[in-house]
């Protein structure tokens, strides 16, 4: 692999400053192999990371070529390699942050999550509860009411809608909702007691 001489680099940089249309392609052609190789060797990163960092470096340079100061006697390829190394470090840090974030999320998920055994037990209990409710022989309206009450629905207006009492005057509506609610809950309590006697 051959690299441009100091004089060739100087001329290349001048062409960039003069806005020669072909000069950017020449910067890629002449300098990216060196930058990629050096970044890969010194940063111990992958070929893809070295490639992306080298491309970043050249695009950053092309955007602001004036930032390269020839008076400091630094070679253009060394200047580009320095930028590429910094980009490689940024990439590594970004990757590290992402991995830590994902690990933290995974740990929280594992701690907060339930074991498969717990999930299965709950499923079995829920199925048994549904089977028992079906044995209560409630009509559709009462089943719907019980469903809402067990889910914590406390609004008289909502329960009145479920029971079809929404057209009644307010006082009467409240009375009817209370009556039906108490009746269904009483049935539930009675059924629960009977069920526990059966099991004992």
């Amino acid at each position: 692999m051959s690299f441009p001489s100091r004089e060739e680099e100087r001329r290349l940089h001048e062409r960039i400053l003069e806005r020669d249309p072909v000069a950017p392609a020449d910067v890629f052609r002449l300098l990216i192999p060196y930058v990629m190789k050096t970044v890969r060797m010194e940063m111990h990163c992958s070929q893809e990371d070295a490639r992306d960092s080298a491309i970043d470096a050249i695009l950053i340079y092309l955007n602001e070529p004036e930032r390269y100061d020839r008076q400091k006697k630094t070679l253009l390829r060394s200047f580009l390699t320095h930028i590429a190394k910094m980009r490689s470090v940024d990439r590594y840090r970004s990757w590290e942050r992402r991995v830590l974030r994902e690990q933290k999320y995974a740990e929280e998920f594992e701690l907060g999550g339930r074991s498969p055994k717990e999930v299965m037990e709950e499923t079995v209990e829920a199925r048994r509860a549904i089977e028992k409710f079906e044995q209560m022989n409630l009509d559709d309206r009462d089943q719907e009411l019980l469903h809402h009450v067990l889910l914590g629905e406390g609004s008289t207006e909502k329960l009145a809608q479920v029971l079809g009492h929404e057209s009644l005057p307010k006082d009467e509506r409240q009375q009817m909702v209370k009556r039906d609610r108490d009746r269904v809950l009483k049935s539930l309590r009675r059924f629960g007691r009977e069920d526990s006697h059966d099991e004992s």
Partner: peptide, 20 residues
């Protein structure tokens, strides 16, 4: 046709100053 060329061209397509 080096292995970095296509990626460089794709990245260059997002730079308004480049022909890409």
């Amino acid at each position: 046709n080096p292995d970095w060329l296509e990626t460089a061209a794709e990245r260059g397509a997002r730079v308004p100053e480049l022909l890409g």
